[in-house]
Amino acid sequence: MSDFSAALSGAFHLISSADPKLVQIVGLSLSVSLSAVAIASLLGLALGAWLAVSRFAGRGVIIAVLNALMGLPPVVIGLVVYLLLSRAGPLGQYGLLFTPTAMVIAQAILITPIIAALARQVIEDAWNNYREQFQSLGVHGWRASATLVWDTRFSLVTVTLAGLGRACAEVGAVMIVGGNIDGVTRVMTTAIALETTKGDLPLALSLGVVLVLVVLTLNLIAQWLKSFAEARYG
């Protein structure tokens, strides 16, 4: 038990001292994961909404693939993005490997299927409820999609948070494409992995506690915004 109490007091100490190195790492974690969520939401919500209202041959296969992609191991995505961005790879000329941008790309690829698959289900449920009304009003295609996205926006916030949680928690992809460079691409999860490899388990666990608190704070803010908006405009 002494390990856990040491980790908790360590986490408290890290936060209360506002260690500039920790602040920089937390800041980078947040900007990388939030950027990835922003990109993935744009793509994932559009894809999910489109899949929810369209009917075509092969749709079932696409949905099955999308659901399967939710389980993609981050390390595989990391490897693929690494090979793409490497100087010897097809996008090598941009020199993006070992930069925060590479980490955003990897995380966006990781969570786009999650947001798309969950959004597809949420929007399709709404579509099943309103289909007849839409058809009688002559609303089709992207107009129907847009209306449904708007109608299910509160559920979609939760979908987005699921993507954010996955982005903040993963270590395999950002470790490979970011390189865990001190002060440049070191984020919460790679810092935890590094301290573990150094055998400093209490410090690693303290950083873990800080990460959980950061994610919790984000979720509380989202929850608060959501209930505020529901109460006011819902």
């Binding site: 900007s31 939030l34 950027s35 969520v37 922003a38 744009l42 930069t99 925060p100 941008t101 955003v104 708007w150 926006r153 908006a229 006011r232 405009y233």
Partner: peptide, 29 residues
């Protein structure tokens, strides 16, 4: 009556969040 404004406020806040994160992303390198 608040519906159109609400929608605009929501969209505006979404756009601000999105621009903000994209700006930090572009600013980093």
């Amino acid at each position: 009556p608040t519906q159109p404004y609400a929608r605009r406020a929501w969209l505006a806040s979404l756009v601000i969040v999105w621009l903000g994160t994209t700006a930090t992303l572009v600013g980093m390198p």
